[in-house]
């Protein structure tokens, strides 16, 4: 038994010496295979003649029906609304996955609550953000929220839409967390949860309520499809913004610590 173990150890050590060469061989083999794959893909894509796709002229009458004049928004929310619903759900699931993995200290949201791995916590607690940063944030955040609202609304007739607006909202949230983490900790977690669920819930409700108008799922009633789309877009933008911010934080606020901070 003992002899067998030492034998295995010896074999492992001798393997370690060979690993260097095997790594090199492996790297060469993979890069050769990938080069072949890329060449093949190049040939396959370039061989494909520019197909007789549905061009803008063929789609033009459909765009008029869609309720919005921006073609990308019409495709995203009307023609391929199902895709976008699933996309919003994927973002929601990613947020859910992150919240189920880790808790963060709500007063110090950039640090995982496990103290063992962070012996030297960066100190965000200080006497509050510096004057310039605080003033900048105070000016920038409302402006960012305003522009996010405009972008979301503008998605109906030009470049823009829920995702652009949501990304800007997410950026505003991340800036706020970096600058004033203590202010974030005063937001009740229930409100954050409500905000995350709002977009997918509105999307689903609108989709289901289309049955009431005699259409299929996500087949909006013909006159006034635009207002339905706007409703979905604003809900989705708010949810995307809040979800992106929570993705950045990397965990759910620890309720125990929240209670602790409420007491003093």
């Amino acid at each position: 038994m003992n002899g067998g173990l030492t034998g295995m150890k010896k074999r492992k050590q001798s393997m370690k010496g060979k690993f260097k060469r095997k790594d090199w061989q492996f790297a060469t083999l993979t890069s050769l295979l990938i080069a072949t794959l890329v060449t093949f893909l190049c040939w396959a894509i370039l061989k494909e003649p520019p197909g007789e796709d549905l061009t803008a002229e063929a789609l033009a009458p459909l765009f008029v029906q869609s309720g919005v004049t921006s073609p990308v928004t019409a495709i995203l929310l009307n023609f391929r609304g199902y895709d976008t619903l699933l996309e919003v759900m994927v973002l929601f699931l990613a947020g859910l996955g992150i919240w189920s993995q880790a808790t963060v200290d709500p007063t110090n949201p950039l640090v995982f609550s496990s103290p063992a791995t962070h012996p030297t916590k960066p100190n965000f607690h200080g006497p509050g953000p510096e004057l310039i940063l605080a003033t900048l944030v105070r000016i920038l955040i409302p402006l960012m929220v305003l522009v996010a609202g405009y972008l979301t609304w503008a998605g109906g007739f030009q470049a823009g839409g829920a995702f652009q607006g949501g990304a800007l909202l997410g950026g505003a949230g991340i800036l706020l967390i970096l600058a004033e983490p203590q202010r974030i900790s005063t937001i009740p977690p229930a409100l954050i949860r409500f905000g995350i669920v709002l977009g997918p819930a509105i999307f689903l409700l609108v989709g289901v309520s289309c049955f009431g108008y005699g259409g299929n799922f996500l087949q909006y009633p013909q006159p006034g499809a635009g207002s339905w789309l706007l409703l979905i877009e604003f809900g989705a933008a708010i949810s995307i913004g809040i979800t992106l911010t929570t993705l950045f934080v990397g965990g759910r606020p620890d309720p125990k610590r929240l209670k602790g901070t409420d007491q003093p």
Partner: peptide, 21 residues
């Protein structure tokens, strides 16, 4: 053709989600 562009917009959001997770 706007359809691939809309697909890219969807793909970016999915990519951000998976990266974060």
């Amino acid at each position: 053709d706007h359809v691939p562009h809309a697909m890219v917009l969807t793909g970016i959001v999915i990519s951000v989600s998976t990266t974060a997770l």
